[in-house]
Design a protein around this nucleic acid. Structure first.
Lengths: 135, 135
DNA sequence: GTGTTAATTGTTATAATATAACATTGTGTA
DNA sequence: TACACAATGTTATATTATAACAATTAACAC
């Protein structure tokens, strides 16, 4: 088949960035990533942003829009970054990816009144996590 | 009964910024607001951002996080910006605020598995609007 | 009125986030 | 091989947002 580049393998920079994001295991900002992978040879913001773009596109990571931060995907079932939900603690900034099949089913099937067909959504819940709510 | 002013509690800059956002009636970026209200005496980004912060806080406008843009609230029932949902056309960038009581009820009552209590959420749907989907 | 306090404003400077442009190198495959 | 496209390297710049601090105005008790 012509021109089928499956991309099951990540490029060097993509792998470096993904490895770091998976290691820290919490949302991290682009320039923080940059500072931490400079020893691996990545020198410029654009190298990071290009890797991030690709990793978001293939669903390996997600962007937490309200925080301009990136986090590794924890679900095996959102491999194309098209149905994401997060809980965010407004005190400690802890972020968890929500994996709730009822919720995702509900949102995937949601139809707005204008009849618009959606192919993607992102949902961010805010509140206090258990730790912070007892303080 | 006292005379009813339009927005009794807003300050001068807040009113200028809100008037402009309501006039354009679509999501608009902070620096675009700045350029368009300079004739009203607002000169610096910070004056715009301070007004935006306040207007978001009191629910007069919402921020479209994925676009870094601000839009006037269309619902009378989200006056504190705590339960927002939007549909976004990825082609023409048209944004509509979704007002669906079933959806908002569902999300308000959503409980995550960690037992975290939410006080706020923001949901952004992406797709093609009717116009763009027939092109 | 005066005094007090908080909110708002004005201003300059700078931080933080992200992309443009273009030359070069790597990779898969016909 | 040659081609197409993905990825890289690099410099510069655009875009979005906040820090710091002084001055002014609004709300309100006395």
């Amino acid at each position: 088949m012509k021109h089928m580049h499956k991309q099951e393998n990540l490029s060097k920079n993509q792998q470096i960035v993904l490895d770091y994001i998976e290691k820290v295991n919490e949302p991290i900002k682009a320039y923080s990533i940059l500072h931490n992978v400079q020893k691996k040879g990545i020198k410029a913001p654009l190298q990071v942003y290009r890797a991030l773009d690709k990793l978001v596109e293939i669903g390996k990571i997600h962007k937490i829009e309200s925080r301009n931060a990136f986090v590794a995907c924890k679900n095996s079932n959102c491999q194309i970054s098209k149905a994401t939900a997060f809980s965010i603690c407004e005190s400690c900034e802890e972020v968890s990816e929500i994996s709730d099949s009822k919720l995702s089913k509900y949102l995937k099937n949601f139809q707005d009144k204008a009849g618009m067909k959606f192919n993607k959504y992102n949902l961010e819940f805010f509140g206090l996590c258990k730790k912070c709510s007892v303080k």
